[in-house]
Design a binder for these strands. Structure first.
Lengths: 327, 327
DNA sequence: TTGAAAGCGCTAACAT
DNA sequence: ATGTTAGCGCTTTCAA
């Protein structure tokens, strides 16, 4: 910037004025400065800029489970869109569902002085965020609520969605319904398992714990777990998969044409309607969730200081075939 | 940091030493400082840190087409992984295949002083990067080569992959092969169209331009275009789709069970093997591409100053059924 | 082992 | 309409 000033024969402040489009610069001076900027290939250093107190970095942090998972990339897409409209950039990182990793990512983002953080938490205790919150960093939780602190959150109605799924299977006459449950440390998976239990309880059916497969975390694990279920002496006639990875695993295990096992999955996914047996799902909208969270964050950044808000998004049952297979 | 120094009763520099784990600090002094840091919830300001000349920001920029597209999110995932291992964060943005948008994103990243940029370019002219390159910002192109400048690039062998796809259809006896071609402004789509033409030329078949649908850009466009193809008086017996979005569109148009139209798509995708008719594809590995590009970038950041390198990754034909349907 | 002073690139406040 | 000065939070000499 100093070089530009020297080249244009003006002071630093004048260059600053031109760069930031402040008014009160003579047209010809402005042109001289613009020329110098062009000639020198100058870019304002936004790091130095945001060093001044009271300045924003115009950056938000996004912490998700895994960019490679379409559920999370759907969120990321929506967040990026909103951020872009607000003139913000997004720094993103994946936790791979590791609480320690989540903390490290958040710490790194704070050192980078992001104005706000959008967080799909992996851990359950977020008291480590108290200092940041107090320091004025806006934080909005996505998909899973905060633990140990009060903060904004946008989540899905997991329990009733899962309950709905299982009730749908019960309505078709299923009585032995398996569960592919992901790791209990994943909040949504735990909630959906509760919904599963609630539906069975509501129908007066005792839960057969042998039909529960808690623990598998990726599609390959889920595949193995689903095979185990089918290999039981008295296998389930239907399966509820708590998320898209579980559904994928289940699909591969269930495709054996000899047996017709019903399947309902939580999370919709691309091509679910194009499969040999189209998949019935509890659908919700990751993009809407990401968008709502981003909107909430920017409202905070714009000065909204109301009490923490919790937005709960609805789910809907999409029947496509796999969930309507009779026992 | 000043507060920490005051609280611990030491100088700024001593705090700096402790924070950066420099040696030459008495153990008890170090403890006092660490306590103060803890008590004050202090985080080093990495922005200020990287303001000093010669300092890195430990940040790389990633410019892709669209995080929501699994092809790009596969790249992003691999890049993030490598960056993480190197202690870097990733700032990402999507161009939505708009050249102007690409330039703006790159400019923003430069203002944020990223150490390097990984770029899936939307435009064809990258001379605007010359100043940055000269200023020492490392740039690696992904999926599409640079235009007008010399720079590292990791790409896929598009022409021969596409040629292979079409030759596979020709080998089954197809003579009227439609093309779903995406926008010509997308480099890979253009290259794959060349491969299509080359295969037909090699077989001595004149290209029927009415079977080419150039222009559709998302799956919905592709769906409409595929329907147009099928509605022709003399429709194609096979279709080559130049990328995953085109394949998705084609799929939905072709699922009418009454007619059996063969399909080969460029880009593999999740569940391609689980569809009613499993899809034959020209597969390659977006993650490998992203990973290789990131490795190359970090080698540059580590001081490698060799001539620009171009890495060309192979493709492979994966036959699953849709490409083996006879005419 | 510790500290003082200078300065990175920028902008806010205050001249001129 | 333009310039001067100070200082953001840190690290880098250099000195004690």
């Amino acid at each position: 910037m100093r070089d530009v000033a020297a080249t244009a024969g003006v002071s630093l402040k004048t260059v600053s004025r031109v760069v930031n489009r402040e008014r009160g610069v003579a047209p010809d001076t402005s042109v001289r400065v613009t020329d110098a900027i062009e000639r020198l290939g100058f870019h304002r250093n936004d790091l130095a800029r945001s060093l001044r107190p009271g300045q924003k970095t115009s950056t938000v942090g996004l912490v998700i489970g895994d960019v490679g998972n379409p559920f999370f990339s759907g969120i990321a897409r929506a967040v990026e869109q909103v951020a872009r409209d607000e003139g913000y950039m997004v720094i993103a990182g994946s936790t791979h569902e590791d609480a320690q990793h989540e903390k490290e990512l958040v710490a790194t983002l704070c050192m980078r002085r992001v104005d706000g953080i959008l967080l799909v938490p992996a851990g359950r205790d977020h008291r480590y965020l108290l200092a940041e919150l107090a320091a004025g960093t806006a934080v909005v939780f996505i998909d899973r609520p905060p633990g140990g602190i009060e903060a904004d959150a946008v989540v899905v109605d997991n329990v009733s969605g899962a309950r709905r799924a299982v009730e749908h299977l019960l309505a078709s006459g299923h009585r032995r319904i398996g569960l592919l449950g992901d790791s209990t440390s994943v909040f949504t998976a735990a909630q959906r398992t509760l919904g599963y239990r609630a539906a069975l309880a509501g129908a007066g059916i005792a839960v057969d714990e042998r039909l529960l497969r808690i623990g598998p975390h990726d599609a390959a694990d889920a595949h193995a777990a689903a095979r185990e279920l089918l290999a039981l002496p008295d296998p389930p006639t239907a399966v509820f998969a708590v998320n898209n990875r579980m559904s994928l695993g289940a699909l591969r295990a269930l495709r054996d044409p000899g047996r017709r096992v019903a399947l309902v999955g939580f999370d919709d996914f691309e091509l679910a309607d194009m499969l040999a047996t189209p998949i019935t799902v509890i659908a919700h909208d990751p993009a809407a969730m990401g968008g709502a969270a981003a909107e909430l964050l920017f409202r905070r950044l714009a000065g909204d200081t109301g009490p923490p808000r919790q937005v709960v998004l609805p789910t809907r049952l999409v029947t496509r075939g796999s969930g309507e297979i009779p026992p």
